[in-house]
C-alpha cells in the first residue's frame, strides 16, 4: 500500500556534513573511552601484590612520632618492611585486631626492620584518640588527610592491612581483621626470611 521512501525525493536533500560527522564520532568515542576507564578503575580493585607502592606521607596525631619526627614519608623507609593498617574508630571489626596489631608491633619494633603505620580512615579526631587510648596503641598513627592514601591503595573498607617489602613492593594484603596475632607473625617472618 505505502511505498518505502528509500529514494531521496529532492536534490536539495543533503547528507550530514563530514565535519559534523567527525565531531559526532569523536564525542561518542570519547564518551565510551571515559566510561571504559571508569569501568576499568572499578574492576581493578585494590592495589595488587607485586605493585610498586607510590610515595606518600602521613602526619601523625599529636603525641605519636617515628624516629623523633611527627611525620613519615614512605620513601624514607626503604630497606624496611612497612605494615600499613587502615582503621577507624567507628569500625567494629577493627577493634578485634587492634590488640593483636599493637602486640605484634611490640615484638618487632626493636629489630628496626619493621615499621607499623596506622592510617585513620574518615574519622574524627576525638573519637580516634579515644580508640587509640582504649587499645594503648603505640605505633605511629595519623589521620588519612583527604582520604588520599586510602584512595591510592583503593581500599574497599576498613580494616585493611598492606605489607610492603624492603624494596617498596606490595607483598601481602589483609582484607578484614586478622584472626590472630600469629597471622601477622607468619606473614612478617616469611617476609624477613626472604
Amino acid at each position: 500500500m505505502q511505498q518505502p521512501s528509500a529514494e531521496p525525493t529532492g536534490s536539495e536533500r543533503k547528507g550530514m556534513p563530514a565535519a559534523v560527522q567527525a565531531v559526532i564520532w569523536v564525542l561518542l568515542l570519547g564518551l565510551l573511552a571515559l566510561v571504559a576507564m571508569g569501568l576499568k578503575r572499578t574492576q581493578q580493585g585494590t592495589v595488587q601484590i607485586g605493585d610498586k607502592i607510590p610515595d606518600f606521607s602521613l602526619v601523625f596525631f599529636d603525641g605519636y612520632t617515628y624516629e623523633g619526627k611527627n611525620e613519615v614519608q614512605l620513601s624514607d623507609l626503604q630497606g624496611k618492611i612497612v605494615v600499613i593498617n587502615f582503621w577507624a574508630s567507628w569500625c567494629i571489626p577493627c577493634e578485634d585486631e587492634a590488640a593483636a596489631l599493637e602486640s605484634a608491633w611490640n615484638a618487632y619494633k626493636d629489630s628496626g626492620e619493621v615499621v607499623f603505620i596506622g592510617a585513620d580512615y574518615v574519622d574524627t579526631e576525638p573519637e580516634a584518640r579515644k580508640y587509640l587510648e582504649k587499645f594503648n596503641i603505640t605505633f605511629p598513627n595519623g589521620p588519612d588527610l583527604g582520604t588520599r592514601i586510602s584512595q591510592m591503595f583503593r581500599i574497599k573498607g576498613v580494616p585493611e592491612t598492606y605489607f610492603i617489602d624492603k624494596q617498596g613492593v606490595l607483598h601481602y594484603i589483609q582484607i578484614g581483621p586478622f584472626a590472630s596475632e600469629d597471622d601477622i607473625h607468619t606473614i612478617l617472618d616469611g617476609m624477613l626470611g626472604q
Partner: peptide
C-alpha cells in the same frame, strides 16, 4: 544513620 556520621555531627 551510621556511626561514622554520628561522630561527624558531634565534631
Amino acid at each position: 544513620p551510621t556511626e561514622a556520621c554520628k561522630d561527624w555531627r558531634e565534631l
